[in-house]
Design a protein around this nucleic acid. Structure first.
Lengths: 220, 220
DNA sequence: TAAAATTTGTGACTAATAGTCACTTAATGA
DNA sequence: TCATTAAGTGACTATTAGTCACAAATTTTA
């Protein structure tokens, strides 16, 4: 109920009615995501989402307590998919390559799924998190931990191998995260109007190199 | 008129009436800035701004075409002040120190003036810039050029001195800007809840070091 | 100076939209 | 079969950006 059907704590729905209800919830989220493809995603109204999902506006509120609840469910789903994407390359042994892989996977996921990515970006905001229900807040915290845990483990290996500076992995992660977030923001804001950069791909290459350089450059 | 009185193309107001009108415009901006100190600045209404400035709501729209016009004027004023702050240290000869100075001045300006900084951050968004009048758009472009020009010159000196990698200064700037923007976003979003970081100052030190490391680390 | 024109100020009004609620419809179960 | 619960609905409320017809003050013109 209330936006929880798509979470990880998903007890199998029994009746046809419950199944249909759960399916409808996914339809609402899919309708929302398809409308959020538009760069002006924040102006999409609940009424438009309802219309796209071919239901009444009131029904949306039977599934989600508020608009933020829709955003949150899109974001948690997307974050889970990113974590899955990271883990495909789990067996890598070269740490620098593993870091590059995480960076490129992140860019691919964010740029390949602009709607979900934009919403997820929005959902990182402190004031957004504050007004969430404790359950959703906890889910976000769990996902955040999985991210820092996954990346932190790889960075720690890099430190142990002497490839990265011996600093707390959290500190190393801060730089990476800030640069990634800033770069994604730049891309979405159309900041890349500088004539030196032919395209987005070049920009990503530059940023990715800078991210790795920032890590290893800290050694001295 | 219409939000232009605070711009650089400021012909001296002649009559008392015109002076008062210009002063009122500044009062509206000051009222807006004082209300925007609140982290939930986006929820501040035009009516609240009018009340704070002790005028009617309609009067606000005699000075500014829309709410965005208020944002834009706050932002251009702030950007101009940052450029001035940069130039205080113009005589520096050590390039790495000059870069560090720019970074620390930027952080100081952004964190010391949260209201104006938040608004300026918002005004960087492409969709915001799009819906501005051509005049304001041009003013933002001019300011952007002054930023890239100022920082670009310093970076070029660094390249000439062999301290920085021989890459287009625009490329070097991209990494710096992305990390700075991402870090500022993190601070405002309250992302620094990781126990390793005692305070904001530590975070800024970590990020600043990472920014310089990213630049010089690119050399290899 | 008086009248006309212009500038500045105003708050009631309009439009848009998030969220509510009393009600309808359909499914489940006793 | 009938009662209870779940699900769906769109008219309604509250809020807020922006408009506009008018008022007041100032400046210009006669």
């Amino acid at each position: 109920m209330l936006g929880c059907c798509s979470t990880t704590t998903d007890e199998k729905p029994i009746s046809r009615k419950q199944r249909e209800f759960a399916r409808r919830e996914q339809e609402i989220l899919a309708a929302a995501v398809s409308l959020f493809e538009n760069p002006h995603w924040e102006t999409v109204t609940v009424e438009q989402i309802a219309k796209k999902a071919e239901i009444g506006k009131g029904t949306v509120y039977k599934h989600f307590t508020c608009k933020d609840d829709i955003y949150a469910n899109i974001s948690t789903g997307f974050m889970t998919r990113i974590l899955t994407a990271y883990r495909i390359h789990d067996e890598r042994t070269e740490i620098i390559d593993a870091i590059k892989e995480i960076i490129s996977t992140s860019f691919e996921m964010f740029l390949g799924n602009p709607a979900e990515a934009r919403v997820s970006f929005y959902c990182k905001r402190g004031d957004f998190r504050e007004r969430l229900t404790p359950e959703l807040k906890a889910e976000f915290e769990m996902l955040d931990e999985q991210f820092t845990g996954y990346i932190g483990t790889i960075l720690q290996k890099g430190i142990n191998q002497g490839l990265l500076p011996n600093k707390p992995v959290e500190h190393l992660m801060m730089g990476l995260e800030a640069t990634f977030d800033g770069a994604i923001g730049s891309i979405w804001n159309g900041d890349i109007n500088c004539p030196q950069v032919e395209d987005q791909e070049t920009y990503i290459t530059i940023i990715s190199e800078y991210m790795v350089a920032g890590l290893v450059g800290l050694k001295k």
